[in-house]
Amino acid sequence: MMSSSPAVLVLAPLGRDAKIAASILATNQIASHICDSLEETVSLLDEAQCLVVAEEALISSDRTRFAAWLENQPAWSDFPIVLLTMRGAEVDTRLAFLDRYLIVLERPFLASSLANSVRSALRARARQREVQSYIEQKQEVADRQKLLIRELHHRVKNTLANVRAMMGATVRSSGNVQDFVRDFSARLVSLADTHSMLTDDYWQTASLHRLLESELGHYETHDRPRIVLEGPNVALVADIAIPVGMAFHELASNSSKFGALSRPKGRLDVRWSVGTSGDTQVVNLAWRERDGPEVEQPKRRGFGTTLLERVVAVQCDAKVELNYHRDGLQFTMALPLRNTRLVPTY
């Protein structure tokens, strides 16, 4: 076997043709490998760029595997072959299957004739490889388009399901039409903001810090900052980012109405870190409010509680805990991270 992958295979087992051809190629800075049999040659064709072969080497061998390899080449490939024949003789009819790929060189040949023939073959192979690269790039583009279409289908279905759930929950928690319009509109805007982050990012992820910033930025006071966001950069795939973004909206909205952000001196700390659980990375996030009104356990479950305890916990496989401490709401979440989208095949 070859220690590296020379561009040219040489098969001429009789006489000194193989050594002479290899020496000529080496003089012209063309790497080659002398094969002992057609069987060895066929096993190396996938890595080679050209074959120099004596006519008698093919005639005296079983050509079945060789012919099958040539026949089964991909559409972009016409593997170049330099066939060494005897001067004045016609190419043996048993080698007619080589017509598409053949450069015929009569022996005895000039060193320059062999070098030029092989260079011509290598240039042709290089152009074929360029075509291969172009075809593969087009296929990658087509595959990505298919993925994006599936992603869009998946995203639209999930978004419509989220909107329907939000509408039902908002209706149940609203005292009048004005409350419904206000709360439902705010939730739609939050959902749209999360989708914008995902769409703007090539990899379809959203930054955890940006999700929090988007929901909490309107409540910050620049003269006396009262919101702390602290943690490493974490990118969330869409299946996680959408419900987590909605959860942050509910926490921020409730805090602005009933919690720390409803008071000028209220404070909010959101800190997170990334750890591991087995082979999975996990974001450990803590939301802590203080210096707000005294907190009481709500008398009924609202949309926010349902979202945190059911949607985030189930859809994101997260462990969440919501504690109504008298001195301020505390929310903790252990969120397993995923590197890929759960896009189904339609």
Rank of each mutant, 00 (worst) to 15 (best):
I81C: 03
L160W: 06
V171I: 15
H218N: 07
A169F: 00
A31C: 03
V282C: 06
P243M: 11
R16H: 04
K19G: 05
A252S: 15
H209N: 12
A21G: 08
L95W: 00
R63P: 05
A318E: 05
I135L: 15
G88A: 06
I242Q: 10
E213I: 03
N72R: 13
A126F: 12
T194S: 07
A334E: 15
Y324K: 01
T305S: 13
A286I: 09
S256T: 04
F109N: 04
V131D: 05
G175W: 01
E296S: 11
V189G: 02
L110H: 14
S23V: 02
A75F: 06
D327G: 02
Q49I: 02
S5A: 13
D179W: 05
R16M: 02
S185Q: 11
A186Q: 10
K138L: 15
A165H: 12
S256G: 10
L110T: 11
F258N: 10
P232S: 08
Q281D: 14
S173A: 13
G245I: 01
A89C: 10
V274L: 06
Y324N: 07
H218D: 02
H153C: 08
L216F: 10
D327F: 01
G328A: 06
E321S: 14
D179I: 11
V270Y: 01
T41N: 01
L188F: 02
E71H: 12
L11S: 06
S133L: 14
N233C: 04
R164E: 14
D317R: 11
S277I: 03
P243D: 07
S273G: 12
M1W: 01
S77D: 01
V91K: 12
G88P: 08
Q204G: 03
A67I: 01
R16E: 09
T221E: 09
L152K: 12
D193G: 02
E40N: 10
L25S: 05
W272P: 06
R164I: 09
R300T: 15
V163F: 08
A31M: 00
D36R: 09
T159E: 03
V8N: 04
V177Q: 08
F109M: 15
Y134E: 14
V274W: 10
N158T: 13
D183C: 04
V118M: 13
L51E: 05
A18C: 06
S32W: 00
